[in-house]
Design a binder for these strands. Sequence first.
DNA 1: GCCTATGATATGCAGGTACATATCATTGTT
DNA 2: AACAATGATATGTACCTGCATATCATAGGC
Lengths: 136, 136
Amino acid sequence: MEREDLGSLFGRITRRLIVAEGPLLDGHGLSMWGYGVLSQLAQEPAANQLALATAIGYDKSRLIALLDEIERDGLVVREQDPADRRNRRVRLTPAGRARLTAAQADIRAMEDGLLSELTGTEQRSLISMLSRLANE
Amino acid sequence: MEREDLGSLFGRITRRLIVAEGPLLDGHGLSMWGYGVLSQLAQEPAANQLALATAIGYDKSRLIALLDEIERDGLVVREQDPADRRNRRVRLTPAGRARLTAAQADIRAMEDGLLSELTGTEQRSLISMLSRLANE
DNA sequence: GCCTATGATATGCAGGTACATATCATTGTT
DNA sequence: AACAATGATATGTACCTGCATATCATAGGC
């Protein structure tokens, strides 16, 4: 099949999404990775920070400063795991969940606009395929 | 529709593609952006460097050094536009085209492996949707 | 000829990135 | 108790990135 490189296609769309997300996240006082952390924690609290970094594909060294920041903002809390005191569990605060929900609404609306070039059936098919490709 | 963020899905797949492409391109002595330039020039020679930078979404300042490099390797040539001597036309050399073709074969094979999780019909549908989202 | 705009080029900056290493506390094993 | 392994943290390095600025040659309108 003759086709354009996947890398080029995915790269351009990803860049487009990042550019569109920037101002929306700014409006909620969140960085891209801060938003990523909140999203991940909403799916499941992190047993420790290393697992959190791995889950979102972020550098574990830099995660420290990022968590410092969003913890200072009251969006997440780090608490010692009584079972293994080396671990810091990270979980969303109610404020963090509220901030996430608000930001997600804006982002979802932006994404829906982008997806509006596709039919509803196509949209569902695309999400399904992307999930499979991302999680293999 | 309940779904994961598009940014997260696209971001993870893009990263996965970049990681997989790295060693393949290394094997052909190409950087990611060098490959991007060759791909773009294969579609259409660049009337000038600014247009080339814009077409591939690369920084025009950094394009200079990149072109220096792949021109030194004999993959492209910069030639003055006789109609407007400010412009530098950039086009593939036969060596550049050969290098591109070889690299593309490897990358295409890698991509096909990744896409093998999808049915043939799905693959065609995916490419179609990605093209529309990338080019709108 | 004068002025403005444009393309190629060079350079600097502030931030982002992966990657490696080092320290310290804690754990589990022996 | 001695030891190796692990998690959190801090730091360093090398490179990439977008963005801004400055220079120079050339083009085109006036």
